[in-house]
Every structure is written in structure tokens, then in C-alpha cells.
Design a protein around this nucleic acid. Structure first.
Length: 950
RNA sequence: GCGGGGGUGGCCGAGUCUGGCCAAAGGCGUCGGACUUAAGAUCCGAUGGCGUAGGCCUGCGCGGGUUCGAAUCCCGUCCCCCGCACCA
């Protein structure tokens, strides 16, 4: 599509303010796209979701809705801020990344200012989106953060509201922390340990008098099976004060605990691991004396640096025990432990795993099975540990009091809770694997204090969200379950950050409201953004204004006095909000499924009554380019503006919007784009050829074409209502084009086609394409002599009365007849014979009678009985029965009558002749004479005449 | 680990809820033909295998089962993808 043509229509739309939406008497449709983050230019990934949203917006507009599609820009968060900061520090990698992404060199200096960055991309976004032809009402644009103070006022109002309602509280929580960057380290900020998670470890306090030996474990329930403790003899431990208690800890563990806000102080005393060996500690659950033994597998970096030994259920412990026993003599002399103390250690079985075929000591069994004999067989031990851990966790049952009979998975939680609450254990956080920050520093878990939380765990609140999730429309349907489960698992949300751009928490200015939390209800802001942009100052946007406009609380005169906003304006804003809200459809990528979209429901549910909650969500997958994942790091992101320059907006739009409609990722391929290009070109050709189409008749072929078109219109309409932009495309473009092709062939050439019928057909196709290819459609619409903008035409209404099942069936029968003839012809000719003529025998009348009897009865015996009661059938005997048997196998019985079939074939005989290059003769079964003819004629059934090739 | 979703023809992708019209829509690709000096584009046709008459065989991850009949329902099994919070 010619670029200048696209620009022409964009200009015309703008001049005519086609997409500026204000309240009126029509039914409204409010559609939104999550505002994009301003750290890059739009790429085809954005454009995919965007094209789908715009298709729906334009479709709804054509359906007669007053459609509002606004747009805004998101700048909240630490990413933009981080880019600027890294540039200020002279980070070359950052600079290179920006240049690779296409940023002009001279902008680098400017990019040291985060506000500049956001504004820079924002200008580009708006420019590109206009080129993309999205039907946005730009009067309502805005950007988040304190860059645009009215927005901050809006956010402040929201959080004051939530606090008032008791949904906000202050607490602590653990994060993965980089001590160098002094900030939490998200998955994307890590060179190592992207999958790492914060895990909870129980530190169980064994004691030697008042000295605490905390052993770290993931399996607190095994405390009942402890036979000894393990210490690394070569390691030096420190003695720390934890509150009132004296703890033996590796220094690493002490550091971790300190970062986790435990009250921990060094005493300066040190103790060697080997000095602990042979000592006896008390098991806190039963006061038994537990001997401390040396083991080299104990890693001071993990947990506390001390471990309890449960050889019955932990392969490592059993393997170490084997080592120890083997060297009992040596140990005895080295550490002065009586040999007997070592020899008499016996595994204590506490978990029943017989359901999995294990006996008393699963760890021993698996070690034997895998041939593990020493703690040095690390690889095997890891595998064995994993296996046993999983099996016991899922299938194991406790067999010691007071947990006898309880599943391990439950006992584990119980035991830990009881130990901790009775002061016999402490909770410690650790990482499931090592994490290294992008800056190269090793990370650990830090507990952040004074953090502000949104109480998403609140039962009533959560329940309301779940209920609404069941009630609202979600496309595709499978997204619903995902969101639902996310809500069920959702804990409280830490919604403030120390760093980045955003809006400050109004009552605690040290904190910024984080990026997902300031974007939950901003769709409401669109409804008034137009007025704000016309000159309402941030200082006028006092909470009372929002209370009134969004919630209808307060007296407009008083609010006007206090805020200085004219009362009329306030009333208008209120009316506008009432008119547009709620959001009718929010279309997004699947990345927002398990966060933003859910949070948005949460906040709507909290602040508004049910009639303002979001009506529908539509979610789609990512875009691959030529089968490959786009990735910023590899510089393989397809910039939207470049794509538009290269291919034109319409082709990019239609290719994207037609590429998918589910959560699966889609593939953007140039070859697909070329397909659309060729189909569009063909439409244009057909339009140009309209003058040559001289047919006047409305015959079978025309009725078929019209019927098929109506069917496609109907299906496309239904699909677009469900945001199925891909499935709809098949009905809008591919099917109709194939039908037209058939039609032209059927009537014997373009010049014989009925121009008026084709024109109507093309008009409908052009209009239905308009949401996808608005520029092209506008251009074709004017070529077709249509009035006004195609974008503002009425969406073709399916005319059910023109859907003609009979005609469709007849054309189907015709086409399969031709296929059959061709197949036979091919077979004959493949052996060198030639063909010249086809005789077509329409079935005898009694066969049609059989068919209609069959259709009424649907029961073989009855049908046969009834037919056999008639002399005419009886005399045919087996022939009738065979036919009934055969028809019974056909699931769809033709609805055609004999007369219709004959008429259809007569009418189409020239066509058949042309298609098969054979002379055609239509006969009835009774007209068959010689044996060859009789044989073939006999095979005829209704809808499927006998064929004889000569 | 927990949760969600999948495995369909050379590829992408419908169909699965509501079993039969499904050798399986649509698109891509491939092959043959037309056009062209040629290539490309475009158009026409074919595209699971076999087949001297419209048929037959195989087939929707794998193995079983239910049924007159299964891509569709049930059981088992293997494999793959996505999310899991301080990244937006």
C-alpha cells in the first residue's frame, strides 16, 4: 500500500476528528490497551496486541457503538531511572545497548536524565502509533509519575482511599538483595540464578547447656529421627549473641541472619568445628542426648553450618554415617570418642513410605540400590536425596507421636510452626540457588523493613475478585483459570519502592508507589483526562474532586469552591465518567495476566460498585519474528516504525491481527504478509474489473455467492465479538475470495459475472476489512463509490434470509461430482486410454423415496418394513435393503430432491463440461440401456449420480 | 516444587467442550502447468499412500479402553511450553 495513501487517510481522519469520542446518546464501548513503558520505541510485539485492540475498536465503532479508545504512557519504575543512572556512571554496556537499539549517538548525553528518556520515547510512540493508523482519541493522552502532576494527584487519592479502607499496612518481607547495588535484584537483573527463589529454612536449636547449636533443615519433621549432628571439623565457627542466647554459627550464616533483621551480635569468641566433635547436644523435642560428629559435606555457606543427621531418611546422612563407622577406630583416637558411641548409632525410622514400596529406612535402601558408599559420591547423593525428598514429601506418612498418621507434607509445616512458636527453632531465609547480580556481586536474602503492603490476602476482598473473575468475559477462556489460580495463591503485595520514577506515597514520602500499583485504575483517568488537558491544574485536583467525579461523593458546589474548578466542569467530568465507565474491553499481552489484570480487578472491586468493574479482558501471546524469539539483548527486535516504512501500516496490521488470538505465541513472517498483499491487490483488481462484468441474472451461482457471503459475515461478526481476530479473518478475506473465485469460474468468466452482485460482495469485504486495513478500505470504499469514511460505515449486517442451505448443498454436490469425474478420468488416462464424454445418471425416484423415509424414521428395521409394505419396493428386494444399509452409513443425508438435482445438473452441464474437458450428457437411471450404462447407473444415489466415462 | 496450557498432515494452525458431514478449515511451503527471452510476481491445478471407475489402506505424541463409530470421551504413559512477585 502506497505510503502517501495511508498518510492521506490519517490526515483526513484527524481533520474530521473521526476518533475523538465524547458522550452522546449512543451506546458506548470503552476499550483500552495497557499503557506501554517508555523505555523503548514500539516494536511488532507491542503492535500485535495493539492491532488486535484497534481491530476490535474499529469493529465496534462500525457496529454503531460510540467507541472510546484512549492512550497514555507509563514511566513509573526503576528501569528508565536505572538506564539514566548507568549512563551517568559511564556504563559502556548500557550505552552500547541503546545504540544497538537505534538511539542516535547525540542523544546519549540527554539520556542521563530519566525524564528526558521518558519524553523522548513518548514522542516517538505517538508519532509511530499515528502512522500505524490506530483509532485513538489523542486528546486524552498523559504520562504517569510526577512528570505529570495531575496523575500523581490521582494516584495519591487512590492510595489515601485504600488506606482509609484498611487495605494498606506496614510490614517486613524478604527480597533477593544485592549489597553492591543496594537494591533488590529481580530475575532480569541477574547473571546467575535467574530461577532462584527465596526458601524458608528451619533452624532447630540443639543445646549444650546454654550454648545453642542451630541446625539448618528443609525437613523439620525429621527432627524425630535425629541420630547425631554433623559439623565440619575444619571450619571455624563464631559464637554470636542472638537476643539472649549464645549461638554457634558459621560467619556466613551470622551475616545472613543479620541481614534478615535478627538481633545478632558477635561475642568475639571462636570455636573450631573439631572442638565440637564428640560433645553431646540436647534434642529440643525429646531432650535426648545427641552426639556431634564430623562430616566434610557440611558447607558453612549453607544454612547455619551445622546439620542434624537423619540417616533413615536422608541419603547424605546415611552415607556419612557409613564413612564414620568405617573409620570409627581412627575417629575414636583422633577425637577421643569411645568407639562404641559411633558403632551404636542406628538409623531411626519415622516416616512410612511403604506405599512406594520402601521398608523401614528409605535412605538406606536407595543408597544400596544406587551403590552409594560414601558422602563423597556427591552426584549420586544429590539424585538420591531428591528422589527420597519428593517421595516422602508426597507419599510419606509420619509414624511418630504426636504426628502419627499425618502426611509428611502437612507435618513439615506443623512441626516447623510448633518449634518456632515454642522457641525451639528460628526461621531463616535462604536462596534456592546462588544468585549473582548483573554488577557481579553475589546476592543474599535481605528482609526489608517498613515496607508498605496491599492486603491482597484479605478474604472478603479476594472473594469478591474471584467472583468477578467468574462473571466477567475473558478471552481466551483458558486465561480465566490462570488468573483464578493466581488470585488464590496471591499474598500481600509490597507496593512501595525506594528508587525510580513514580508518585510518592502521600503519607510517607520516602517511598514511591511501584509500577504495577500505580496502573490499576488509571482507565478511569482517561474519562477526565480530556478536561485535565484543557487546563486543570494539579493543585486543583484535591481528593474531593476525585471523590465527586469518580464516586459521586460530596456536593459539587462545595467541591468547586474548594478546588477552584468551575462547577459546570465538575458536573461534566462526572457525567463523562458515568458515561464511559466501566471498561468494556481491555486487550493485553499474556505478561499482564498474573499481575496487572488481576490487580486491576482488585482495585476496581475495592473502590467502585459492581457496575464500574471491568467487563472483559482479552489476552494474547507474544510475537516471534520469522520463527525466532525477539530479544532486546540480541538486537533482534523488529521496530514498528521500520516495519511500517518497509511494508506499510495496513499490511503490518492485518498480518499481525490475523496471526493469532490465543495465549500461544504467534509468528510474524514476511511471506504471510505477502499473502495478504496479494489478496488485497486482487480485491482492487476485481473492483477495477466491475465495469466488465456484464451478467444481469441472479441465478444459482449468484445465490450461492450471496449465501456464502452472508454466512461468512455472520461468523466473522460473532468471532470479532469474542476478539477472535484470526478466525474472523478467514471469514472476512480468505473464504469470500475463494468463493468469488469459484463464482467467476462457475459463471464462465469475469465478463459473465453479475457486476452488481459482485460489487455488493466486494463492498462488504472492504468494510469488514476496514478494522484490519483501514487505509486500504477507505481507498477502496471511495473507488466503490461509497459515501463518507469507510471507518464510519455500518458493519455489514448478516442477512439470515439469504443463507440458502439448499443452494450451498447443491454447489457442494456439484463440486464433488466434478472431482469424482476428474478422478476417474485421471485413472483412465493414466493407463493411456482417452476419454471424451461423460454420461451422468440421476438416481431413480424410488431412491429418493427411500431417502425421505429414512430421514423420517432413522431406524433401519422400521424403514425397511415401511418400504417393503409397498409393492414397488418389494419387487426390488435386496436392492432396497442394500441402499438403506448404504445410506445408513452416510451421516449426512442430502436434502436435495430429484427434480432439483436434475435441474441443477442441466444448468451446470456446460460448467461440468468445461471443468472436466468432457462432453456431458445428463440422463436418468432409467435411461441406461447397455450393460456398461446399467452398471454405473445402478450406483447412483440421491445427490450422487452414476458416472460413465467414455 | 506449585499452578496453567499443550502435543494434529512438510510447516503454521482450526477442529476436541456438544463423538459420525474429518484425509481433517484457512494460510504457508512443495510440485506440475499457463504467462515471460529468463527469473520474480501473478494465475490455474495437484499436494498421506495405493489404486486400470468415484474405492481401499494408513492417520491427529505413545499404549490401552468405551462405542456400531474417536483427533474428539475414559485410563495410563512420555514429551513440550508458560507464570510463580519487586522486571515492566
Amino acid at each position: 500500500m502506497d505510503k502517501s495513501v495511508e498518510e492521506k487517510w490519517q490526515r483526513k481522519w484527524e481533520e474530521a476528528k473521526v476518533f475523538e469520542a465524547d458522550p452522546d446518546e449512543r451506546e458506548k464501548f470503552f476499550i483500552t490497551f495497557p499503557y506501554p513503558y517508555m523505555n523503548s520505541a514500539p516494536h511488532i510485539g507491542h503492535a500485535y496486541t495493539l492491532s488486535r485492540v484497534d481491530v476490535i475498536a474499529r469493529f465496534r465503532r462500525m457496529l454503531g457503538y460510540n467507541v472510546l479508545f484512549p492512550f497514555a504512557f507509563h514511566a513509573t519504575g526503576a528501569t528508565i531511572y536505572g538506564v539514566a543512572e548507568r549512563l551517568r556512571k559511564g556504563d559502556e554496556d548500557q550505552k552500547r545497548a541503546l545504540l544497538v537499539a537505534g538511539l542516535p549517538e547525540e542523544e546519549i548525553e540527554n539520556f542521563k536524565d530519566p525524564v528526558y528518556i521518558a519524553n523522548y520515547w513518548r514522542r516517538i510512540w505517538e508519532r509511530v502509533l499515528r502512522k500505524f493508523g490506530v483509532s485513538v482519541d489523542w486528546r486524552r493522552k498523559f504520562i504517569t509519575t510526577e512528570m505529570f502532576p495531575p496523575y500523581s494527584k490521582f494516584i495519591e487519592w487512590q492510595y489515601l482511599k485504600l488506606k482509609e479502607m484498611g487495605y494498606v499496612y506496614k510490614g517486613t518481607h524478604p527480597v533477593v538483595w544485592c549489597p553492591n547495588c543496594k537494591s533488590p535484584t529481580g530475575n532480569a537483573d541477574r547473571i546467575e540464578g535467574e530461577e532462584a527463589r527465596v526458601v524458608e529454612i528451619t533452624l532447630i536449636k540443639f543445646k549444650i547447656d546454654d550454648l545453642v547449636l542451630p541446625t539448618a533443615t528443609f525437613r523439620p519433621e525429621t527432627i524425630f529421627g535425629v541420630t547425631n549432628l554433623w559439623v565440619n571439623p575444619d571450619h571455624e565457627y563464631g559464637i554470636y549473641l542472638l537476643g539472649e542466647e549464645k549461638w554457634v554459627l558459621s560467619d556466613e550464616a551470622a551475616f545472613k541472619l543479620k541481614e534478615q533483621k535478627k538481633d545478632i551480635r558477635p561475642t568475639g569468641e571462636r570455636i573450631k568445628g573439631r572442638d565440637l566433635v564428640g560433645k553431646k547436644a540436647k534434642n529440643p523435642v525429646n531432650d535426648t542426648e545427641i552426639i556431634i560428629l564430623p562430616a566434610e559435606f557440611v558447607d558453612p555457606n549453607e544454612g547455619s553450618g551445622l546439620v542434624m543427621s537423619v540417616p533413615s531418611h536422608a541419603p547424605y546422612d546415611y552415607a556419612a554415617l557409613l564413612d564414620i563407622k568405617r573409620e570409627a577406630k581412627k575417629l575414636s583416637s583422633e577425637y577421643g570418642i569411645p568407639k562404641i558411641e559411633i558403632e551404636r548409632i542406628e538409623p531411626i525410622s519415622i516416616i512410612d513410605l511403604s506405599s512406594e514400596g520402601f521398608g523401614e529406612h528409605p535412605a538406606i535402601e536407595i543408597c544400596a540400590e544406587m551403590g552409594i558408599e560414601s558422602q563423597r559420591e556427591v552426584e549420586k547423593l544429590e539424585e538420591a536425596t531428591n528422589k527420597i525428598y519428593k517421595k516422602e514429601f508426597h507419599k510419606g506418612v509420619m509414624k511418630v507421636e504426636p504426628y502419627n498418621g499425618i502426611k509428611v507434607s502437612e507435618a513439615k509445616v506443623e512441626v516447623a510452626r510448633n518449634l518456632i512458636s515454642s522457641g525451639k527453632a528460628e526461621l531463616m531465609y535462604d536462596l534456592s540457588e546462588e544468585v549473582v547480580c548483573r554488577c557481579g556481586t553475589k546476592c543474599h536474602v535481605k528482609v526489608i523493613e517498613d515496607q508498605w503492603f496491599l492486603k491482597y490476602s484479605d478474604e472478603d476482598w479476594k472473594q469478591k475478585v474471584l467472583d468477578w473473575l467468574d462473571a466477567m468475559e475473558i478471552y481466551p477462556e483458558e486465561a480465566r483459570a490462570q488468573m483464578r489460580n493466581f488470585v488464590l495463591e496471591l499474598r500481600d503485595w509490597a507496593f512501595t519502592r525506594r528508587k525510580g520514577l513514580g508518585t510518592r506515597l502521600p503519607w510517607d514520602k520516602e517511598w514511591m508507589i511501584e509500577t504495577l500499583s500505580d496502573s490499576v485504575i488509571y482507565m478511569a483517568f482517561y474519562t477526565i483526562a480530556k478536561h485535565v488537558n484543557q487546563g486543570i491544574g494539579a493543585e486543583q485536583l484535591i481528593p474531593e474532586v476525585f471523590d465527586y467525579v469518580f464516586l459521586g461523593i460530596g456536593d459539587p458546589s462545595k467541591v468547586s469552591n474548594k478546588s477552584g474548578i468551575p462547577k459546570e466542569k465538575l458536573l461534566e467530568m462526572r457525567r463523562e465518567f458515568e458515561y464511559w465507565y466501566p471498561v468494556d474491553l481491555r486487550g493485553s499481552g499474556k505478561d499482564l495476566l498474573s499481575n496487572h489484570l488481576v490487580f486491576s480487578i482488585y482495585h476496581h472491586v475495592a473502590l467502585w460498585p459492581i457496575d464500574k468493574w471491568p467487563r472483559a479482558y482479552s489476552v494474547n501471546g507474544w510475537v516471534l519474528f520469522e520463527g525466532e524469539k525477539m530479544s532486546k539483548s540480541r538486537g533482534k527486535v523488529i521496530n514498528l516504525e521500520e516495519a511500517i516504512e518497509k511494508w506499510g501500516s495496513d499490511l503490518v496490521r492485518i498480518t499481525l491481527a490475523s496471526s493469532g488470538e490465543t495465549l500461544d505465541d504467534v509468528d510474524f513472517r514476511e511471506e504471510n504478509l505477502r499473502t495478504f498483499e496479494s489478496r488485497l491487490r486482487r480485491i482492487e483488481e476485481y473492483i477495477e474489473l466491475l465495469g466488465k462484468m456484464k451478467g444481469r441474472e441472479i441465478g444459482r451461482a449468484e445465490r450461492y455467492l450471496i449465501s456464502r457471503l452472508q454466512r461468512n459475515v455472520k461468523e466473522a461478526t460473532e468471532m470479532l465479538k469474542k476478539t477472535m481476530t484470526r478466525s474472523a479473518m478467514v471469514r472476512i478475506l480468505f473464504n469470500p475470495m475463494n468463493d468469488l473465485k469459484w463464482y467467476f469460474k462457475r459463471v464462465g468468466g469475469i465478463d459473465k459475472a453479475n457486476g452488481e452482485v459482485v460489487r455488493e460482495c466486494l463492498k462488504k469485504i472492504v468494510l469488514m476489512l476496514c478494522p484490519y486495513t483501514p487505509h486500504f478500505s477507505e481507498e477502496m470504499w471511495s473507488k466503490l463509490g461509497g459515501d463518507g469514511f469507510a471507518s464510519l460505515q455500518k458493519w455489514p449486517e448478516p442477512d439470515y434470509s439469504k443463507i440458502n442451505e439448499k443452494i450451498e448443498e447443491q454447489e457442494r454436490l456439484l463440486s464433488s461430482l466434478i472431482e469424482d469425474i476428474k478422478e476417474i478420468k485421471g485413472l483412465i488416462e493414466s493407463r493411456g486410454a482417452s476419454t471424451k464424454k461423460v454420461k451422468i445418471f440421476v438416481a431413480s425416484d424410488w431412491k429418493y423415496q427411500t431417502l425421505s423415509t429414512l430421514r423420517e424414521k432413522r431406524n433401519k428395521e422400521e424403514v425397511i418394513k415401511e418400504l417393503m409394505s409397498m409393492e414397488e419396493f418389494r419387487k426390488r428386494g435386496m436392492e432396497v435393503i442394500r441402499l438403506v444399509e448404504r445410506l445408513f452409513k452416510e451421516e449426512t443425508l442430502p436434502i436435495i430432491t430429484r427434480e432439483e438435482e436434475i435441474e441443477m445438473l442441466r444448468e451446470a452441464s456446460d460448467f461440468i463440461s468445461k471443468e472436466t474437458s468432457l462432453e456431458v450428457e445428463i440422463l436418468s437411471e432409467e435411461e441406461a440401456k447397455e450393460e456398461k450404462e446399467l452398471n454405473k447407473a445402478k450406483q447412483s444415489i440421491p445427490g450422487r449420480p452414476g458416472i460413465l466415462l467414455l
